[in-house]
């Protein structure tokens, strides 16, 4: 069976005034229908750029490498030449949910009009049908008084409500692939719990593939089936969520888990990962994590290592350099 989404050898670079920046370095990911792939990492790790590459939403100064492939449902997005091809993907086969729902809705257009507009772009529906589907969708995501909300503006809704409306709009075209970029980060915990439960139900019901981007390992643990840990544009560890979080092997994954305050173990010290994430302008050569790695060797042999994932256990992929240094 072919995969729903296949990313092969993706490099993304940005041309800026200060030089060429590597945002993504040789990332390969696959996602099947009905699965949730979590991407986790700190700011600057390239999580959002990965998602935006799938939708081709990166800015004009973006450079993709020639042998990269982003295959959605058999079509390589990077080989699209006309805007019409992209339109089928954006909002049709693939939908995206953003972190800040206030910024994602147009402030001066009613929520209902925005939902109807995008539905009619992608489906052969008339206005009335589109309206009915939209209101049905708003109901489905737990918005009370959906008909009234349909005629309101984004500012009239609370944060949690707006995020629900955003989800309703993203799902109304029945996409095969949903990209969720920090969808619960701006919400309070009780609202976050509501939205997570809602998303889990909907993912099951619609049987789509989901890429769920977050910096919160707790959210990943509760939502995702598989997880990819990213650092400075590279995937350093990848596998089933249970395996990665219970048996992390890469020093960065371990560092992230140790830095997290655990409410069930208040005596555990909080251990920060030493140093700062390097600027993308001076990305370390060799193993990208070597400047902060507790296992980095004195003689600096990590400088000349070529990064790449190897399978250390069935399904558990780990960066080559991480395999060696973990043994020390």
């Amino acid at each position: 069976m072919s995969h729903l989404l296949e990313i092969n050898n993706l490099d993304v670079k940005f041309d800026t005034d200060e030089g060429r920046i590597t945002a993504i370095d040789n990332v390969s990911l696959t996602l099947d229908q009905g699965r949730v792939l979590g991407i986790v990492g700190e700011s600057g790790s390239g999580k959002s750029v990965t998602a935006k590459s799938i939708m081709q939403l990166n800015p004009g100064n973006t450079i993709y490498n020639d042998n990269a492939e982003i295959i959605i449902d058999g079509e390589n997005v990077l080989k699209f030449t006309s805007k019409n091809d992209l339109k089928k993907i954006r909002g049709g086969k693939v939908s995206m949910i953003f972190q800040e729902p206030m910024a994602s809705f147009a402030p001066a257009i009613k929520i209902g009009s925005q939902m109807v507009e995008q539905l009619m772009l992608h489906k052969p529906l008339d206005k009335k049908e589109a309206k009915n589907i939209s209101i049905d969708m708003l109901n489905r995501v737990g918005i009370a008084d959906a008909e009234k909300r349909f005629n309101q503006y984004a500012f009239e809704l609370s944060g949690g409500m707006r995020q629900r409306a955003m989800i309703a709009m993203a799902l109304s075209t029945m996409p095969k692939l949903l990209l969720a970029d920090e969808p619960t980060t701006a919400l309070d915990v009780t609202i976050q719990a509501q939205v997570i439960n809602l998303m889990k139900d909907i993912i099951k019901e619609f049987n789509m593939g989901v890429i769920f981007i977050t910096h919160d390992l707790g959210v990943i643990a509760q939502v995702a089936d598989d997880v990819a840990v990213m650092y400075l544009g590279s995937v350093v560890e990848q596998g089933p969520v249970n395996e990665i979080l219970k048996n992390p092997m890469h020093p960065y994954t371990k560092g992230l888990i140790n830095a997290l305050p655990d409410i069930n173990n208040l005596d555990a010290p909080l251990t920060p990962i030493p140093g700062n994430i390097p600027s993308p302008l001076d990305r370390p050569t060799g193993c990208v994590f070597r400047t902060r790695c507790p296992h980095a060797s004195q003689e600096g042999k990590e400088e000349n290592i070529k990064m790449g994932l190897v399978e250390v256990k069935p399904g558990h992929w780990l960066d080559k350099c991480g395999v060696d240094c973990g043994k020390i």
Binding site: Q192, G218, K246, L260, I263
Partner: peptide, 25 residues
């Protein structure tokens, strides 16, 4: 109690459901 149960656990096997509060503040 609801606040505490809403914190997503980092243990993927701990799927204990949050005490879901209705509505918003």
């Amino acid at each position: 109690k609801a606040l505490l149960s809403s914190i997503p656990s980092i243990d993927p096997e701990n799927k204990s459901k949050a005490i879901e509060l209705e509505g918003e503040i």
